[in-house]
Amino acid sequence: MNSKETILANIKNANRPNITKLPNIDILHVEYEDKDEKFSQTLKSVGGVASWLENDSSIEEFIEKNYDDLGLIGTNLDLNITHIKPNDIDDPHALKDIDLAIIKGEFAVAENGAVWVKESDNTNRAIYFIAKKLLIIIEKNNIVNTMHEAYKKIKFEKSGFGLFISGPSKTADIEQALVIGAHGAMECRVLFV
């Protein structure tokens, strides 16, 4: 027998009961009166910032107003600012000097400040983690209460990579002191447009 067969045989021989059904996980869960407000608060508590684009303003204007020193911008979005397109680059190592990555989020989760990111057309995952700063753009009102609602919206049919990002990267490995900016982004902003 090869190892797979041995392991599976051992598992089958383990003589476990077979009585527990998979539970229905559609349980009653917390719902927030003002999901925008809850998301904003939660994101703040994990070191991020949520903003809402004013109606007569553009993403470009927002960037100009909110980032002093723009540096190198990387984004696959069609924005009218100087940037490089990660999709045009073969080697992800070449993204190492990007200061600000601008990416598209699908929806936000109020209970934990997370944003679901799944850019099916993005070919360079590193962009999410390698940039110093992260700006996630989401359509307004795309906020769910909890992860229960979130996972109802998630599918892996077209492409296989997706992630929740909740604020900037962080660590508390030195004496439990929270430090923002471990290996990933040191700053994370979510912009609703």
Partner: peptide, 16 residues
């Protein structure tokens, strides 16, 4: 005691 980890990353394919 965080509401979720910063990154919850789902891998269903190798990278390009």
């Amino acid at each position: 005691g965080q509401p979720v980890t910063t990154y919850t990353t789902h891998y269903h394919e190798p990278q390009r």
